[in-house]
Design a protein around this nucleic acid. Structure first.
Lengths: 332, 332
DNA sequence: GAAGAGTTCCAAAACGTTTCGGAATAATGG
DNA sequence: CCATTATTCCGAAACGTTTTGGAACTCTTC
C-alpha cells in the first residue's frame, strides 16, 4: 500500500480510503490510484487489516469426525454458507479426543476467529471452562453442554429414536439390541433415553446385555454387534446410534454369516446418500443436515451482525424416520 | 502483553523473549512474568505475530466437493497431518466452479496462508495465472495442471482404469459404458485414456455413444446412466469415473428395474468404507487416500521447512482394483 | 471580499507482536 | 584495579493496515 501511495503520489490514508470506498476521493486521484494498484499488483493484506480491525472474517469449526457422513454434510453446508457471506472457515477434527478439542479451540481463539461453531466432545465441566474464556460468539451444533448458555442447533434425539424403536417393536421385535456412543455426549444420552422409553412404553424390559457402549467408530460398532449377536438369546433387531458404527455392525453380520433383514433387522441414526441404492436399504433417522448447517450459520451471522437477542437461542429440529427394507417383521 | 509487562515490572521485549523461550531471562523475572501471565490470563495474539513474522502457520486447502468420499478422506488425513504439525487448515470447496476457486484462492492468499494445497478445477491457463501470483508453495493433489511447476501427488489414473476395464472385458463384456467427468480435468482425461486403451487393446471399438460426459455429481451419473441404458444396443457393463456418479447410476438401474450385476455389471473409481457390506458390493479402484494425504502434507511441510529441492517433486501413486461382486460374467 | 460551509487530502497514532542494537550490570582475566 | 567479555534487560522500530482530527483548498452566500 505504501508503494501504491508513492507510485500514485498520494498518502497511504488516501489509498486506504479508496480501497475501502469509504471516503470521497477526486476522480483524478481515483484514476491514479487505480492504475498504481494495477501496475504494482497490490492486494490488501488481510492479516494487517485483521489486527487493526479486530476481526478476521474467519470462523472456527470443530467436529468429531469429518468422515462421518452426517458431519461431512453439515460441514459442507456450513462451509458454503460462510463462503457466501465472505467468511473463511478453519476446520478441525477432534476425533472425539478432549485434549485435541482444547488445543484446537485454543488455536482458533489465538487466531482471533470471529466465532466458533463446535460439535463438542468430552464432559460438560471441561468444555464449560474452555468456552468460558472465549470472548467470541459460540454456537453449538448437534451436542449441547449443560451450563453453557450459547446459541445452538440440535435435534430432538429422544423423539426420533423413540419413533424408530417403536417402529421396530411394531414389527414384532421384542429383543432389540442398542449400540450406543459415549454417554458423556448429550446427543447420545437422549438417544438412549428414546430407546428406553420406547421399550418401556411397549412393556418390554431393557436388559443391560442389550445395550452396548461404543465410541462412535466403525470398529466399535463391529465389536458391539458381535457381542450382541453372540448372546445366548440373540436379539432379532439392532439399532445403532450413528452411521460409522452401523457399518461395523453390518460387517459383523456378514462375518457371522447372518443376513439383514432376514436374520436380523437393522436401523440406525443418520441417513446417507447411498442408503436407498444398495441392499439392504437401510432404515435410518435422517437429520435435516441442510437446515442444521444453515441454522448454525444464520445464528452465527446474526450474532456477528449484532442483530441477535442477548439471550441464547437454541433451535431444535426434528428427525425423520426413513423406512426402507432393512427391518422385517420378527419371526416367531 | 503490555499488561503483563507492566504487571511484572519488565519490558514487553522481555516478556516476548520469555514466551518465545528465545533469550535467557533470569529465574526471578521468569517467575514474575509467569505469575503475571497467569493472573492476567494472557494469550499471545497470533494475528499480530503473523503480521510481524510474515507467517501464519495456516495452510489453505481447496477441493471440489467435500461430500465426495474420496475428498472427504483426503481432507481428513491432510487435516490431521497439519494438526500434528501445529498448523491450522482453512478449507474451501469450489463445487467445481472456477470463479469460486479464484475467489477462494484469492481470499486464502490475502490471509497470508503459508501454503496452498489444491485439487484444482477449470482449465489450465486460468489456473496457471491465479497460481502464478502466489508467492507461497503450492501442492496440487489429484489433478495436475499443464505448465505449472509445483509439487504434486497424483494417481496413475490411466493404468488404474486400464486394469479395471480390462477386468470387465475379461468377464466377457464387449459394450462397456463409460461415465466421465469434465475432461478439462487432467485426472478425468487420463481415466478416459485408460478406458480407450483397454478397449482398443482388446480390439473393441469405442463408439461415442458409449461414453457420456458428466459433471461429477450424482445427478450427472443418473442422467448419463439413463442415456446408456436406453441405448438400442444396451451396454452390459458401466464404469463410472467417480463415486457420486456411480450412486446416480445405481439409482438409474433401480428406476429402470434393472439389477446389478445380473443385468448390468458396474464398477467405479474411488473406494468407500461401506463398499463391502452392502449389496451389490461394488468393484472399485481404491486410491491410497492415506498416502495421498500424507504425501501432500509431507511435500508441503518439507517446503515450508526449507528442506526440499528447488525443482518440483511429483509423486505418483498406484490405484488398486478391489474386485467384489458388482461385475458378473457377460451373458451371451 | 470575508465568513462560513463543503470538499479533499494527509500526518500520525494505533493494533500486538518481534527483533535489533545498545545499555547496564556482573563476571572474568591480567 | 582496569579492560574485556558475558549476561540481562530494555527502547524503539517495524510489520501493513484503519481512523481521527485537522489542514488546505474551493465554493457559496451575503
Amino acid at each position: 500500500m505504501i508503494d501504491v501511495a508513492q507510485s500514485a503520489g498520494v498518502s497511504i490514508a488516501t489509498v486506504s480510503a479508496f480501497v475501502n470506498g469509504s471516503a470521497n476521493v477526486s476522480a483524478e486521484l481515483r484514476q491514479r490510484i487505480e492504475t498504481a494498484i494495477r501496475d504494482i499488483g497490490y492486494k490488501r493484506n488481510a492479516i494487517a487489516r485483521s489486527l487493526k480491525m479486530g476481526t478476521t472474517h474467519t470462523i472456527g469449526l470443530t467436529v468429531p469426525h469429518i468422515t462421518n457422513p452426517f458431519f461431512t454434510e453439515v460441514v459442507s453446508v456450513i462451509q458454503q454458507a460462510f463462503d457466501r457471506a465472505g467468511y473463511a472457515v478453519m476446520l478441525f477434527c477432534t476425533d472425539e479426543h478432549l485434549h485435541n478439542q482444547d488445543d484446537q479451540i485454543g488455536l482458533l481463539l489465538d487466531r482471533m476467529v470471529d466465532g466458533l461453531i463446535v460439535a463438542r466432545v468430552g464432559d460438560d465441566a471441561k468444555f464449560r471452562e474452555i468456552i468460558g474464556g472465549a470472548s467470541v460468539p459460540v454456537v453449538l451444533i448437534d451436542r449441547l453442554c449443560r451450563g453453557v448458555e450459547t446459541d445452538a442447533v440440535v435435534l430432538d434425539n429422544r423423539q426420533a429414536v423413540f419413533e424408530a424403536i417403536s417402529y421396530m417393536i411394531g414389527l414384532g421385535h421384542r429383543r432389540i439390541g442398542y449400540i450406543s456412543g459415549d454417554v458423556d455426549v448429550s446427543t447420545i444420552r437422549e438417544r438412549g433415553e428414546g430407546y428406553r422409553r420406547a421399550m418401556e412404553a411397549a412393556g418390554l424390559a431393557v436388559s443391560d446385555e442389550l445395550v452396548r457402549l461404543g465410541d462412535f467408530h466403525e470398529a466399535d460398532g463391529y465389536r458391539a454387534a458381535m457381542q450382541l449377536l453372540m448372546l445366548p438369546d440373540r436379539p432379532t433387531a439392532i439399532f445403532s446410534a450413528n452411521n460409522p458404527m452401523v457399518v461395523g455392525a453390518m460387517k459383523a453380520l456378514r462375518d457371522l454369516g447372518l443376513t439383514c433383514p432376514d436374520d436380523i433387522s437393522v436401523a440406525c441414526f443418520d441417513d446417507f446418500a447411498w442408503a436407498d441404492v444398495f441392499q439392504p436399504q437401510m432404515t435410518t433417522i435422517a437429520q435435516p443436515v441442510q437446515a442444521i448447517g444453515e441454522q448454525a450459520a444464520r445464528l452465527m451471522l446474526d450474532r456477528l451482525g449484532g442483530k441477535a437477542p442477548a439471550e441464547p437461542r437454541v433451535v431444535t429440529l426434528r428427525g425423520r424416520l426413513m423406512i426402507r427394507n432393512s427391518c422385517a417383521p420378527a419371526r416367531r
